[in-house]
Design a protein around this nucleic acid. Structure first.
Lengths: 206, 206
DNA sequence: CCATGTAGTTAGGTTTCCTATCTTTGTGGG
DNA sequence: CCCACAAAGATAGGAAACCTAACTACATGG
């Protein structure tokens, strides 16, 4: 039975669930910002995400199947999205001789312009982060990578290009720093990548 | 031209955007988890969110209009969602004499059971957070509240029940701790609320 | 050269949202 | 006490975001 006029029990939710609630808010903010941007640009949210993705990723990732896995959508949905973007003249398709079923996506000049603009949609989220001190940023980054790594191992996020899931990565352990066998150098915490272009996934036995 | 091998500036130049990218991943994880849960329970994502919301919020917030603002959706969408949940027997409507246009939503016994189960959907996100040390949790929480506060002030998130936007809140400043004039007590960082049932928004002049 | 697998498309349907329009009710000047 | 206006919610109609399933075309390895 309650004795307090305020429901202290509910209010004093554990710190962990408050953190989850906070993440939920931030996630919501992303959705809202993306939605707003989509109205401004006259594109759907997924169209914008594809354009932004194409801005920064290498050839073997610029394909329908990869995009479907990346965004947890069916190939049909992506195929549709690509068709629309193509009709709008924002994309070009490059067919390679070694596999004519598939093609690589490129942004047209207009597409690149739009993508650059779209990429600013998360500005409102970046601003408060810019204001943190370097140490705060590094700790925040470390915690986020830890969470993402866990989510990846739990199978929630299918595709990953983080150092922690890369076969070139040698774990930080027993006082040894993070190390990349491709770059052949030790990495500071803040140097770990979230979206490495050279990422080569570890084979996972499930 | 940069010559130093310890070019910290360069190394950390993109740390902010890496953090944003990491948040984006976590946001994606929420979407995926909610989607999965919706398939398991045979409810839509928004239906689940409404059920969970009703589990913890007070009468004046359990209304169509409030829910629409809460989730950044139109009243029509929420109205529809409520109709479906009602038809499934998960809700009950309470009409008050002082305003018969509106009604307050309550979970039925079955609805509450479902909501309890649905609320576990974020478990995968909570797990890695549980493993952080108390200090890490506190810093993470502080950084998240700072970001959310900024998003709120930037108008991205319309509804807020955080201490930082509450009229009972007296700011942490000049060595003074956070303070709540309703509870009449000082609050530790970790005691700040993300979703306070007693929240009374500050009037904002725009 | 056939069997099997893979890349992408298409068709068709469901769900999720919106805008616009309505009905009903509350409210605050004249 | 009206009447204009606002506010709560419902409804209709439509766009688009998704899915599954079936299909075409090509690759690849016995």
């Amino acid at each position: 039975m309650r004795t307090s006029p305020f429901d202290l029990n509910q209010q004093n939710a554990h710190l962990e669930s408050k953190i989850v609630a906070a993440f939920e808010r931030v996630a919501q903010a992303f959705r809202v910002l993306l939605w707003q941007e989509s109205k401004v640009l006259g594109l759907s949210p997924i169209q914008i995400q594809v354009l932004i993705f194409l801005l920064h990723h290498a050839a073997e990732k610029r394909k329908v199947s990869y995009l479907a896995a990346e965004f947890n959508l069916s190939k049909a949905t992506i195929s549709d999205t690509i068709k629309t973007l193509d009709q709008k003249g924002l994309l070009e398709k490059e067919y390679l001789p070694q596999d004519t079923r598939s093609y690589i996506l490129h942004l047209s000049a207009q597409g690149e312009k739009l993508a650059q603009q779209a990429a600013l949609f998360a500005n409102d989220i970046q601003q408060p982060i810019d204001r943190l001190t370097l140490g705060e940023k590094e700790r925040l980054f470390a915690q986020l990578t830890g969470i993402i790594d866990h989510l990846n191992k739990a199978g929630v996020i299918s595709i990953q290009r983080m150092c922690l899931t890369c076969s070139f990565y040698v774990a930080h352990r027993n006082g040894m720093p993070h190390y990349c066998r491709l770059l052949e150098k030790a990495l500071e915490q803040a140097e770990l990548r979230i979206d490495c272009p050279e990422h080569h996934p570890v084979e996972v036995i499930r």
